[in-house]
């Protein structure tokens, strides 16, 4: 299972990006503000009309919607829940691409994110951490092969960040491809299997976290002098 970008070009945002992502892994997309992270993610999700290049899923062109919606789940950067609907209703929206009302995937998604007992809570009563879990459960309910999430940790405290990373890891272990845009380089270093670093619409690095997020590269791309502290898997980034 691969999700592949071939020379993606989007005026003023992406300047020819190629990469091949593997299912079963967490791939982090990092880079300074305006580097094109969200654009790359949306292009991979088939939500942007690109000027040139193509996205391929398992060697074939990315199918068009609604077929595409069954393969690729997308979690946007700033979550929005317009109406005060119940948690279960939100999670059930994940079944829309399948045009069914299957109960099992919804139950499984609620289970996976420890939302049992929460089903009847109203959207407006949820805290930021609960909301993030509910919205991820919505993606899981659609049983997509790929989960593309744009800064899912941005508004979460440490405990909720760790919990959500754990849920994403479980999804990857279940064989899904997980692609996340991350601002926190330490999270990317400690939890991703692979890191893509974008800078000004180009790929600045692509590889294992230790290589892609070396202090030298961070200095070059972000323009900040940094040093990694601690042991593998529990590293922290110190700025100097």
């Amino acid at each position: 299972m691969t999700l592949e970008a071939r020379n993606l070009v989007l005026t003023e945002r992406l300047a020819g990006i190629s990469c091949s992502l593997q299912a079963g892994q967490i791939t982090a997309i990092c880079g300074p503000n305006g580097a094109g992270k969200s654009s790359l993610l949306q292009a991979l999700a088939g939500l942007l009309e690109i000027d040139a290049g193509e996205v391929r899923l398992d060697g074939a062109a990315l199918p068009s919607s609604p077929e595409r919606a069954r393969c690729v789940g997308y979690l946007p950067q700033s979550p929005e829940i317009a109406w005060d609907v119940s948690v279960r209703s939100i999670v059930e929206l994940g079944r829309i691409p399948w045009r069914d009302a299957a109960v099992e995937p919804v139950e499984a998604a609620l289970d996976a994110l420890d939302l049992k007992g929460f089903e009847h809570r109203r959207a407006q009563t949820l805290s930021g951490g609960e909301q993030a879990r509910v919205l991820l459960a919505r993606v899981l309910a659609g049983e997509p092969g790929w989960i593309l999430a744009d800064e899912p940790l941005a508004a979460l405290d440490l405990a909720h960040q760790a919990a959500l990373v754990g849920h994403l890891r479980k999804a990857a272990q279940a064989g899904r491809g997980v692609v996340v845009v991350l601002h926190d380089l330490a999270v990317a270093m400690n939890h991703a299997d692979r890191v893509l670093v974008l800078n000004e619409g180009r790929l600045a690095a692509d590889g294992a976290p230790e290589e892609a997020l070396s202090s030298a590269l961070i200095g070059k791309v972000w323009g900040v002098e940094t040093r990694w502290l601690g042991d593998a898997g529990r590293k922290a980034l110190a700025t100097s």
């Binding site: 595409r68 946007p76 929206l93």
Partner: peptide, 17 residues
């Protein structure tokens, strides 16, 4: 309209035309 509850990008990602 249900899908739009989560915003336009999510609705499109759910296959809504």
């Amino acid at each position: 309209l249900d899908a739009l509850t989560l915003g336009e990008p999510v609705a499109r990602s759910l296959g809504i035309d």
